[in-house]
Each structure stands twice: as C-alpha cells, then as structure tokens.
Simulated scan of single mutants.
Amino acid sequence: MKTEYFRDYFYISAIILGIGYSFNANAADVVRHVPAVEMAPVPILSPSPVKTWEGGYVGISGGKTFKGRNPGDGLTRLDGYFGGIFAGTNFQNGNVVYGVEGDLGYDRLKGSQGAYSFKGGVDGSARARLGYALTDSVLLYGTAGGAAQRLSVAEASKSDTNTMLGWTAGVGVDAKLTDSVFGRVEYRYTDFGSKTFSTGSGNSEFGARGGKIKVGLGIQF
C-alpha cells in the first residue's frame, strides 16, 4: 500500500514538474521572440515667435519745447508745450529696424525780445528712422529729416507770420506695453533757419531753433 502511494506521488510530481518546465520554456521563447519596441522620437518644441517691430503704427505725443538763439544774431528764445500725432511704418531685418515717420502738431511757443513778441503754431516733420531692437520689446532708434513750423512775430500792433523750413534730428526709445501698444520717449533738436518778418518798424529777420522732449503712446497694426 505504501509502495503504491509513493509511486502515485512520484508520477504526480513528475507531471507537475514537466508542466512547469514546459510553461517556463514557452514563456522564455515568447520573451525572446518579441521584437523590440521602437520609441517614437520626442518632438522638439520650437520657441514662440519673436515679437516684431515691422508694420505700420500711429500715435499721439506731447511734451516740452525749448527753442532759442542769442538775440544778437536775429533769433530769440522761445519755450512752451506741444501736442500732436505721429504715424509711420517699420521694416525689420534681424535686430535692425528701419522706416519712415511723420508728425503733425501744434506748438504753444511764446517769447519776447524788446518790442517784439513771438508765438508758435502748427509744426511737423517727415523723417527717416534707423534703430536696433535691444529685445523683442525695446527699440532704440535715431531719426532725422525735414521740419516746418509756423511762426508769428508782432511789433507795434502789426504782426507777420511765416512758415519756417529746416531740419530735425534726434534719438529715442520705443517700449512695448502689450503686443500692439508701445510707449515712447524721444529728444529731437530742430533748426528752422530764419525768415524776414514785416512788422511795425519795418522788415527784420527772425528765426528759432532748439530741442523738444517728447513722450508718446502708439498702436502698431
């Protein structure tokens, strides 16, 4: 009886071991024959587009005007405040920004020299601009071109008004406040030359030149 028990136990154990060996071998075969899974390449994210200064823009500006030359050479000192509009267009190549700009405004200039009194009026300019984008939001530029201004001279209850023509040059910085709105600070020097004015005592030559400190707000489109 014991012999049959051990014999049955031996047969059952051998069958179990055989099944286990066969399962392990097949499992190993499956692992060996599964092809390696190729990992898809990780996409490289491109950086966000850099903001550009290229395109047209319009804006408003205002500030303080300082004009003058020694009275001895026919020009007098004027100062006052001004306000106006500006518009232009930019082109951009890398960090280099270039374009054209015009402005039109009104100068509340006043001054006097002896019996003469002086008053400014409408003025404007047409200029070229050349700048360098320090960052995508800050543009440093220089500008130069032609300028014009209306100037009135009065003496002995008689006045005369002329359009003064000259040149202007300056430097400034534009800084973006949003993607399309920018602020501006600019200094410009302008020489309007001189003109002959006919007043109460006859003809006299007068003119004006000096600087402007301008702040502005523009919209790019």
Rank of each mutant, 00 (worst) to 15 (best):
V153Q: 12
Y189P: 02
R69E: 14
G172I: 01
D160P: 03
L45G: 04
A147M: 04
R188H: 03
S180V: 09
K67Y: 11
A169C: 04
A156H: 08
Y81L: 13
K119D: 10
A175M: 09
A175I: 02
A144N: 05
Y106N: 07
Y187D: 09
D179R: 10
Y132W: 15
G84W: 06
L140T: 10
K110C: 01
S48H: 03
K67H: 10
D174H: 12
M164L: 12
G68N: 09
V100A: 15
V122K: 10
G166I: 08
D73M: 07
L165G: 07
E54C: 02
R184L: 06
S159N: 15
R127F: 00
R188Y: 00
F118L: 11
T65L: 12
V100D: 01
E101S: 09
D79C: 06
V58W: 11
R150F: 04
Y189F: 09
K110D: 12
G111T: 13
V171Y: 06
G68E: 08
V100L: 13
Q113L: 05
Y116K: 04
Y81V: 14
D107P: 01
V171S: 09
D160K: 01
G145D: 07
V138Y: 00
L177V: 15
L140A: 15
A154T: 14
W53R: 04
Q149T: 12
G102Y: 05
G121D: 07
V153K: 08
A115N: 15
G99F: 01
L134N: 05
A126H: 05
D174I: 08
T178D: 04
T76S: 15
D179V: 02
F118E: 03
G62Y: 08
G84T: 08
R77Q: 09
K119V: 02
V173L: 09
V138G: 01
G142H: 06
V138I: 15
T76G: 14
S48D: 01
P71S: 12
L45Q: 15
E101C: 01
V96P: 02
S159K: 13
T178P: 08
Y116H: 07
A126M: 12
V100S: 10
I44L: 02
A115Q: 14
R127V: 08
G74S: 08
R127K: 14
N93K: 07
V50H: 06
V153R: 07
G145Q: 06
S137L: 00
L165D: 13
G80L: 04
G84S: 06
P47S: 00
G80F: 01
G124S: 11
K119N: 11
W167V: 06
P71K: 08
F86I: 03
Y141M: 04
G102V: 10
D174V: 08
G166Y: 04
L140C: 07
A128T: 13
L78K: 10
E186K: 11
V96E: 01
E186F: 00
G94S: 07
T161N: 08
K119F: 02
